[in-house]
Design a protein around this nucleic acid. Structure first.
Length: 466
RNA sequence: GCUCCCAUCGUCUAGAGGCCCAGGACGCCGCCCUCUCAAGGCGGAAACACGAGUUCGAACCUCGUUGGGAGCGCCA
């Protein structure tokens, strides 16, 4: 059977990390089996849906590389279809008009709660067969079975059973003439030929109602896979407070899309002891039935590790564009300065994000922005510093401008001056960067370029005498 | 309140009755390497929520307790 999955965001905000994982799993599940992954924009909440949010979600999906196989479906463009299906249910007696006001319904709920019951609709219009009438409170409700059970085999949670007696007659068409979520989802999933519904486990409680709707429509019920939630580091629901929830904030923070994907795929799923998964490996190994049932917490430290892993192991050439993106955001004029690929190789063992890389690389593209006073005192204002700097200046003005040659020069310098490498490298390091931390000294000098390196030694000599 | 879901190191997880006095990874700690910081190498501390039951034998099966989470909208 041709497998079709979908990701169905509502355009009321950005794509958050939990949504990204849902999309990833749906994408993997469909692609692994040679099926299709499609998008549906659930924009029937016209109050809260925005064009900007929709675009932000689409952009994030593109950035992650979770491309859909077909054009997105928009619920707002399918109104006549929903009306048609609701009509059918009405004529078949499987749905009915109800005319309570919102206040009456609220009172109904309160009364139910007061009686110690679940807040539910009391079915007043269920058997009254009221005809259509032009009433601002007119809604269409689904005639849900009152007894029996709804049983389904969830692909991650296993067998789940609900008693129909726990359910009530849900509204499928609102008084404003738009369908409600549970109804639109079912009609869409049927029309789109969705075979596996993959979504957060906060939807488990909606599932029995939806299954009853499938039955009423004589449609084949798809399979369901309810994914556990992703919690923040404290085990609370993800929120702006904890850390970034917006996928695009991870790009801004310097994470690689495949690192994020690798992190997400391992959050709730595993394949033995394997931690590193390329897209291709995920595609062949992932199986939704192996996903964990329990909620998991988002751990930034592990994401950092993965991100650095890819920074270190990816072909540096493939990182050039991503680094440029971060340079632009920081306003770094990267056209004048060392080749980006050299910067990447020099820094990738030392940072865990591209943002950090871009920040640390600034010294090679512009003036030293700040001086570490401690570094200056310790390494520039030492007894040996002036000698080291002067000798280095002389030799650097002539040496072949390659890291290996520079390295050799410095080692010789240490010998000639009878100083340890620390006494030679540290003053130069502070001279080149203003700090006592940087890549290896040969790279640090090399990346400055000869002119800038010599100027910086002159400036450092000034400071060493200050 | 009612319904549903969940429960192995701090975190992500392996484990589908004996292979487990529980393995890997991140993080943490120590040592090595070293021009700084990293990276890397080596080593270490660290968990089966609790209680019954089934069984010759339980992290794995059953029941209960406790603790988390979700839902109960004319939101999705």
């Amino acid at each position: 059977m041709n497998v079709r999955t979908r990701f169905a965001p509502s355009p009321t905000g950005f794509l958050h990390i939990g949504g990204a994982r849902t999309a990833l799993y749906g994408w993997l599940e469909a692609r692994r089996q040679g099926g299709q992954f499609v998008l549906r924009i659930e924009d029937t909440d016209r109050e809260r849906s925005t064009q900007a949010a929709e675009q932000a979600i689409l952009d994030a999906i593109v950035w992650l590389g979770l491309s859909a196989d077909e054009a997105p479906v928009y619920q707002t463009q399918r109104l006549s279809r929903y009306q048609e299906v609701a009509e059918r249910l009405l004529t078949e007696g499987k749905a009915y008009y109800a005319y309570e006001s919102k206040e009456e319904i609220a009172a109904m709920r309160e009364a139910a709660v007061a009686r110690g019951e679940k807040p539910r609709y009391n079915g007043y219009y269920r058997d009254r067969h009221e005809a259509f009438r032009d009433d601002p409170n007119r809604v269409i409700r689904f005639r849900n079975p009152t007894d029996g059970w709804v049983v389904f085999e969830d692909k991650v949670k296993g067998r789940i059973v609900f008693a129909n007696s726990e359910l009530d007659d849900l509204i499928i068409f609102r008084s404003d003439g738009w369908p409600t979520y549970n109804f639109a989802v079912v009609v869409d999933d049927i029309d789109m030929g969705i075979t596996e519904v993959i979504r957060g486990d906060d939807h488990i409680n909606n599932t029995p109602r939806q299954i009853n709707l499938y039955h009423a429509l004589n449609a084949r019920v798809p399979e369901f896979a309810h994914l556990p939630m992703i919690l923040d580091r404290d085990g609370k629901k993800l929120s702006k407070r904890s850390h970034a929830v917006n996928v695009m904030e991870y790009r801004e923070a310097g994470y690689l899309p495949h690192a994020l994907l690798n992190y997400l795929v391992r959050l709730g799923w595993s394949h033995g002891d394997q931690e590193i998964f390329s897209r291709t490996q995920m595609l062949s190994l992932f199986n939704i039935t192996e996903v964990n049932k329990a909620a998991s917490r988002f751990d930034l430290e592990k994401l950092n590790w993965l991100n650095q892993h890819y920074l270190k192991s990816d072909d540096p050439a493939t990182l050039v564009n991503e680094l440029k993106w971060h340079f632009k955001r920081l306003g770094v004029a990267f056209a004048q300065g060392p080749a980006l690929i050299d910067v990447i190789v020099a820094l990738r063992d030392r940072v865990s994000t591209l943002k950090e890389m871009a920040q640390r690389a600034r010294v090679w593209y512009g003036p030293i922005r700040e001086w570490d006073d401690r570094a200056v005192r310790k390494h520039l204002q030492s007894d040996s510093a002036p000698r080291v700097l002067e000798a280095a200046r002389e030799h650097l003005s002539q040496v072949e401008w390659q890291p290996a040659a520079i390295q050799q020069l410095i080692e010789q310098l240490a010998m000639t001056l009878a100083l340890g490498m620390g006494k030679v490298a540290q003053p130069l390091r502070v001279a080149m960067t203003g700090k006592q931390v940087s890549p290896s000294i040969d790279d640090t000098i090399y990346l400055c370029g000869r002119d800038r390196a010599l100027q910086r030694i002159d400036a450092a000599l000034e400071r060493s005498r200050a």
